[in-house]
């Protein structure tokens, strides 16, 4: 498939109360095989999906957060976190997983995939995306 479109996955829900977050990540992983221009934004309770050191054992639900570490290997390396959502929940970027990727255009240097953005910038991201999938 030669067409490359800008895909934006909007993750707005907490990781374990519903299945949306897990099934959203499944779409991102499958979608990575299609060589599209992919960005992920985490906002509202969606910021909890990226929380460090998750332990879902007591809930009986699978802790799928380690899978986020694989995104860099699939060239999914534009991860945006909305500042207002983090702040409203008393969190900072230090509370989140430090997702990285290896930049093939820069001698495979390890770089951060994580970007803190304002609500205004999220709006711009949506504006410039061609396919917006909201979960």
């Amino acid at each position: 498939m030669s067409d490359i479109k800008k895909f934006l996955y909007v993750n707005r829900r907490a990781p374990y109360g519903t299945v949306y977050a897990l099934e959203s990540l499944e779409v991102v992983l499958i979608g990575a095989a299609f060589d599209q221009d992919v960005s992920l934004v985490f906002m509202d309770d969606g910021v909890f999906q990226l929380k460090k050191d998750q332990n879902s054992e007591a809930s009986g639900m699978k802790n799928f957060s380690p899978t986020f570490n694989a995104l860099g290997d699939y060239d999914v390396n534009k991860i945006y976190v909305e500042k207002e959502s983090l702040e409203a929940r008393g969190m900072t970027m230090d509370d989140l997983m430090a997702l990285t990727y290896e930049d093939e255009d820069d001698d495979w240097a390890e770089k951060s995939s994580m970007h803190l953005v304002s609500a205004d910038e999220v709006r711009d991201l949506m504006e410039e995306s061609e396919v917006v999938l909201s979960f």
């Binding site: 779409v27 499958i30 979608g31 095989a33 299609f34 599209q36 396919v131 917006v132 999938l133 909201s134």
Partner: peptide, 20 residues
Amino acid sequence: SGLGQLIEAGVQSDRLVVFG
């Protein structure tokens, strides 16, 4: 069918409209 069908729909269509 698989999730690839969703991605393909996004690529091939002028608009992908999500309900939920």
